[in-house]
């Protein structure tokens, strides 16, 4: 078993695999992240059958927390397997903060949260803003502290899908990219290492100042949202709201009551950035 450890924000992982190439890819891309020995979660990428390590290699994703019947992946998508395994540990296991399926960036000590379905553009927008004067905090999970309501960063490798790959290659040509994985169950996927300061400051949270629900592919529009609607949508967007019980309810309630929230529709990154700046200045 080949093994690597890494820490993202407050959470740490041990990943093991019978294939050295998967571990090497992870170590290359996670090179600048801390490597604690004592980790929170274990993920294994093993052959579905002993001989499938060599013949038509097929990767079974397992870990401390699992969903039944996760589909195996071909070896060329091993890095996606690691990403899925790690995400699952957070989504099913993490209780130290409220987890929102949201991206986040920071400026002047205040954070902007963006939540929405996959395809809404929240991940791509956070990656773009991370190269335009904001500090990137995370493209997938935002961790909301129960005590002070701060957003804690979770700056894992950014997972770019389909057209977002080209967008980011133009936006950040010098960034470190992982291998291009074609025709995965989620389309084409390529990882990009977040900017250095995002990793350096990954234990530094920021008070949430603005919450957006982006909608990619529609005519430009800004709509203010009422707390009731926001609360309902965020219960759907949270991985651990139910498991946290009263604590989770209180954390979410404060976030929703304290933070102005808008839905924004946009056709491209520049348009979205202009709307975000406009809303940010009005705060």
């Amino acid at each position: 078993m080949h093994e690597t450890h890494f820490k993202v924000g407050p959470a740490s992982f041990r990943v093991g695999s019978v294939w050295k190439e998967i571990i090497d890819q992870i170590e290359m891309l996670y090179a600048s992240y801390p490597k604690p020995k004592l980790t929170d979660y274990t993920v294994t990428l093993d052959a579905i059958r002993p001989w499938r390590r060599f013949v038509r290699p097929s990767v079974a994703i397992n870990g401390d927390f699992m969903l039944p019947d996760a589909a195996p992946l071909p070896l060329s998508h091993g890095l996606l397997g690691a990403e899925m395994g790690v995400n699952l540990q957070m989504a099913l296991g993490w209780r130290r903060q409220l987890i929102l399926h949201a991206s986040s960036v920071e400026k002047d000590g205040k954070s902007l949260l963006m939540s929405g379905e996959s395809g809404s553009g929240k991940s791509t927008l956070s990656a773009i803003l991370g190269h335009r004067g904001w500090r990137f905090m995370g493209d997938e999970f935002a961790l909301i502290d129960h005590d002070n309501g701060f957003v804690m960063p979770y700056p894992r490798l950014i997972s770019l899908k389909n057209q977002a790959i080209e967008t980011l290659k133009k936006e950040a040509p010098h960034a470190q990219f992982g291998p291009l994985m074609k025709d995965t169950p989620k389309g084409d996927i390529q990882h990009i290492v977040p900017p250095a300061q995002a990793i350096r400051k990954m234990e530094q949270g920021a008070k949430p100042a603005l919450l957006l629900f982006p909608n990619y592919g529609y005519d430009a529009e800004i709509r203010e949202m009422l707390p009731s609607e926001v609360f309902m949508r965020l219960t759907q967007a949270s991985a651990n709201f139910v498991g946290l019980g009263e604590t989770g309810f209180n954390t979410l309630k404060h976030l929703v009551l304290d933070v102005p929230t808008f839905e924004i529709a946009y056709q491209n990154g520049d348009e979205a950035e202009a709307m975000i700046n406009q809303l940010w200045e009005q705060l």
């Binding site: 740490s12 604690p36 980790t39 929170d40 019980g245």
Partner: peptide, 21 residues
């Protein structure tokens, strides 16, 4: 307990409280 373990144990206790409830 070592700090990282204390966090894991506290997560597990939150979970088992939820299970119980």
């Amino acid at each position: 307990l070592p700090q990282p373990v204390a966090h894991i144990i506290s997560d597990a206790l939150i979970d088992s409280d939820y299970q119980y409830r």
